[in-house]
Design a protein around this nucleic acid. Sequence first.
DNA 1: CGCTTCGCTGAAAATCCTTACAGCACGGTA
DNA 2: TACCGTGCTGTAAGGATTTTCAGCGAAGCG
Lengths: 339, 339
Amino acid sequence: MAASIEDVAKLAGVSIATVSRSLRGLPDVAATTRDKVLAAARELDYVASPFAARLASGRSSTVGIVVPFVHRWFFAEVLGAVEAVLSQAGYDLLLHNLGSSEGRERFFTVLPVRKRVDAVIIVSLALTEDEVEALNTLELPIGMLGAAHPGFFSVRIDDVTAAKQAVNHLLSLGHTRIALIGGDTDDPMRFTPPHHRLTGYEQALRAADLTVDHSLERLGYFTVEGGEAAMLELLGLPERPTAVFAESDEMAYGAMRAIRRAGLRVPEDIGVIGFDDHSTAALLDLTTIRQPVAEQGVRIAAALLASLHDPIEPTDLVLDTELVIRGSTVKAASVYAES
Amino acid sequence: MAASIEDVAKLAGVSIATVSRSLRGLPDVAATTRDKVLAAARELDYVASPFAARLASGRSSTVGIVVPFVHRWFFAEVLGAVEAVLSQAGYDLLLHNLGSSEGRERFFTVLPVRKRVDAVIIVSLALTEDEVEALNTLELPIGMLGAAHPGFFSVRIDDVTAAKQAVNHLLSLGHTRIALIGGDTDDPMRFTPPHHRLTGYEQALRAADLTVDHSLERLGYFTVEGGEAAMLELLGLPERPTAVFAESDEMAYGAMRAIRRAGLRVPEDIGVIGFDDHSTAALLDLTTIRQPVAEQGVRIAAALLASLHDPIEPTDLVLDTELVIRGSTVKAASVYAES
DNA sequence: CGCTTCGCTGAAAATCCTTACAGCACGGTA
DNA sequence: TACCGTGCTGTAAGGATTTTCAGCGAAGCG
């Protein structure tokens, strides 16, 4: 049988209240007393039961994180970063993987985090009004990563500006017929990025006095296959684009494959730029927009922890993105350009 | 203020014991009574406090999962699968990301899962005797994924056989000078696969009456860069290999890059086979050994849940791997072979 | 020297459930 | 009719902490 606080109290010759205080490092405990307690606890190999502690204190020392998918690179990266911050601070991470729009609906109706977390992190979801309302009933600090909402903490990048960065790069290389492979802005999962990146794309073109040709905007559904299919459509156009901006690296990979399978070269015939700086982007020599993924996770977790410590007004942090130029837009000593 | 069980009892006109029983679907409750309680609970928007329930029942409804890294493809995939099974069963998932050997040591000395989970899943770690002992003090069902230990549940593949599959494929193509790019068998994180895959590699060679040339065995540390560096070494040998077996797809990617950068072709000059069937393996046209990643996660989670339901003897399940032939070993209509 | 303050400690209430056990009404059995 | 089992329900005892409040001795102050 595992030791209880009473055993420790007995062994240390103090009351359980003092044990509790000592073990949690609260003030108002004499140093000698604390040492006795710590010694006794070590001797008995005692750790407090978190459930009893949580029940009594009303604090759960747990943060819930809600992701659309765990297994995609971006979310896994975020998860790792958040976990590191939380565990360091003695918090547990309760993972909720939505997986599908049904999963999403279930989450927001059942709200399985009720009465069991101190804060919630929502990753990459554009929330509906109903969902916001549901979260508000929790009366907890809410953090959003990759999106923002008044009243919630948020850490994100400026997708509009980032998309402009990408398109401007292509423009600077002399491209004027630039296609877009993006996510579905009507997707039931309602990711935030597609809207903003589309906006940025169009704004950049307009700013360069180019007309926006909607036939150059295709859906790639954030997958390699989707990107490949979208590129095939683009290649079939009467006047094909000379460059493509894909809203994710995966879609860019697909696009590159389609281009090469069609017997064309990247970047000579068609330049390709992606988004994210996925871990394999360097490998595939893909020009892309790098966003600080882990850092966003660290920041949102830290912000929430701070707000739990002493309640503060929600903050909105926008981190910078960076253009990473590789061989898919600029001819260089690249692996595939060589071969 | 959130409703408590007492409020529900009052509204339904029953005792709290009956509320508890009704809400948990226990038998020995009259149907009409149960309906009254459910109605009252819905009306008050009541959910039981999990911490109170856990304290009272002694069950945590939580499973701990220990992974060396979250952000690597394999572990993210496992995590997603395990989460799906557990959440479906009403269990929480407590994630522990080791990150480094210090993190590992901390985990096994502190044992942060103590008193807070009903079972533990260990992913891809070869445990030391001390670690096994530490886990045993928990007196909980332990599940291992990617490794096995007497007394613990396990789900895994047969790495020896899988490695033989890989090498035999190369042998069948006529290769006789086959190199290995592997993980460090002395790695402080002590992953299981490197040992077994090395063994399989050597066994396959010996079975083909080839001598094992240790100068053909190089360390790639399971990263792209490591694989690239290892391949560079191999290319510098007086008599270079005609094929390479990399113990992971990432290392295979690095190897392919090194080969191409050296002006050689894959597979004509050097064939490459990887391991895992990473999500980008198809994209890079890499021949590889596919292992059922998500399924391993599902199986180990299910096994543990079953054992919590009624204690059973630990099981050891070995799943099949599959050779997936692509353009990196066999000349075909591949992207890069074309260009 | 008497009174306040301070530092520390302990008793006990509070947290919100689960569950063993007792009990009650009712129908069936001998 | 007396008794017994059955099917439900309620009472109350935990479960293991945290936290409030009271209290005690010693030190500081005038």
